[in-house]
Amino acid sequence: MTALTNVEVGTELPPLVLEPITRTTLALFAGASGDHNPIHIDLDVARSAGLDDVFAHGMLSMAYLARLVTNWVPQERIRSLKTRFVAITPVNAKPTCTGKVVAVDGDEATVELAVTLQDGTTTLTGEAVVALV
């Protein structure tokens, strides 16, 4: 497997720009992910909890962040992946995933991750540690 070269603090991963998250996206993700919590797919349940609408699964955005990282390095090089879910992702939001190297220690790099919506809201922050060779 080839080594990543020229990785240094400040190196940015190619951003992953997603399509808007539709209700269909949420229905498919509920089935595929096994997370059937109705708060994400059933408007009646969302309203019964005092919400105006359903909202996206946090793990959908984390899956997008994982795609950002595996687009950059083969998955077997990922040592860890961590996220904090800092804001809800509404239906029809359009996420963009970004990553920037914040530390290089020997053969490992630490990448700071974020998911941001088109209105500037940051929904996820996180960190991945990847092996460079």
Partner: peptide, 11 residues
Amino acid sequence: LRTILHGEQSF
């Protein structure tokens, strides 16, 4: 279950 938010996740 309706009151739950996912705060953090790591692997």
